[in-house]
Design a binder for these strands. Structure first.
Lengths: 219, 219
DNA sequence: ATAAAATTAAGTATTTATACTTAGTTTTGT
DNA sequence: ACAAAACTAAGTATAAATACTTAATTTTAT
């Protein structure tokens, strides 16, 4: 049985969520609060498994409340509720230590999934805010977190789109045959592009080509 | 109008997704592929806005395909499809540069939301995989970020001193003539060493040689 | 609409690399 | 001292890259 505390300043919203969750065996709403301060008190009294808390509330907002709670009751899981996918809210919620984030328009199924997930020690952030998370926190190989890149030399030439494409394949040490197959062009064409690249970069072998490509940051 | 390419090895799945998306104005499936290699070709030919790609496929899996595509067609957005929320798949997809991740059980609404989101330059990772993302990539106040472990593979062979010497020159993309001059040996000798290196590392081209050398940390 | 730029690809000759094999000459370990 | 391992390098045949040129399409910009 998962014990839940609901914090939202609108009774209607609390009732709605309660209805949504409670005809589901396994989840029970044991107490409620109508602002952040109250949420703190209720959590300290009841030690629920999960606190579902709205972000915009009077007295003390949900994010501040969660930051406090996470300091003192580390095993109370927290699920943020918000009207919109505000970047600021999402970022601050994560920094505060929230275990999940749902929009108020979430379906019953998603609500239940989220509560179960965070109760069992996982996280649940709705897909609607994934874009914000990825852009602000994740630097996967291909994602940007604004690296301070060294100054590139000025290009005394311009490469066409196709040439850049072929350059990148050449730099992977692929031979013309492979490049041709990959781009669905004739091997002879690949050769021409490679030849033009060598000319433009004034390289007389692959080694020089990679070096210049690095210098000009074509890499 | 958003142009989509679908890659999945099951025709039924493709048909299902197509049906799901196409009665929605604004999205059109312009081509299909049944494995990763084919996906590469189709993408190179059609330059779609979005590639929806299954992860488990024969020939070349979806993650490898996306990694390739992201290198050469940076503005083709990619949406991964997977049966389950496998940690490995999610992590590798993000590292490959995927723009989104959906489970096959996603609703029509979520599908359409995801396609629109990635097409417009955003990200869409379903809530079901948020836990994985948070645990692996996000270091909010309370989450851990793990260091990448550079574990070298065990060497199933031994390189001689001379071979290591020549390997390092080969990896600098120097040709046999240059290497021979540098080491004051005959070009033919350099060739033999290079040949033996290729054999030992089981590489069939320079590209594979550099990759294996990296794997075994001979670099 | 049309000129300029880009992409495509063939032709030709020369140089390198690849894929081996064989084999003579050092080094090195015990 | 002596066998094993390492280094050297030639032979041969095939495949690929290099270094160009020419030129037919296709795309892009004005």
């Amino acid at each position: 049985m998962i014990n839940v505390v609901l914090a939202d300043d609108h009774v209607l919203v609390r009732d709605g969520i309660k209805a949504l969750l409670e005809d589901q065996t396994g989840i029970v709403v044991i107490d409620e609060a109508s602002n952040g301060k109250e949420a703190l008190e209720v959590v300290s009294k009841n030690k629920p498994h999960v606190l579902i808390i709205d972000i915009r509330m009077p007295e003390m907002n949900g994010i501040e409340a969660v930051a406090e709670i996470k300091k003192h009751y580390k095993d109370v899981k927290t699920l943020m509720l918000s009207m919109h996918d505000s970047e600021e809210y999402v970022v601050k919620s994560i920094q505060a230590g929230a275990d999940g984030y749902l929009l108020k328009g979430a379906s019953k199924e998603e609500f239940i999934k989220a509560v179960n997930k965070v109760a069992s020690g996982g996280k649940y952030f709705t897909g609607d805010v994934s874009s914000i998370i990825m852009n602000n926190f994740v630097n996967g190989t291909a994602t940007k977190v604004e690296e301070p890149k060294p100054v590139a030399k000025e290009l005394p030439f311009k490469l066409t789109k196709r040439e850049k494409q072929i350059l990148s394949l050449v730099l992977e040490l692929k031979n013309n045959k492979v490049i041709a197959e990959e781009l669905q062009i004739s091997k002879r064409t690949a050769e021409v592009h490679r030849f033009n690249l060598m000319k433009k970069l004034e390289a007389k072998n692959l080694q020089e080509l990679t070096n210049k490509a690095k210098d000009y940051q074509l890499i």
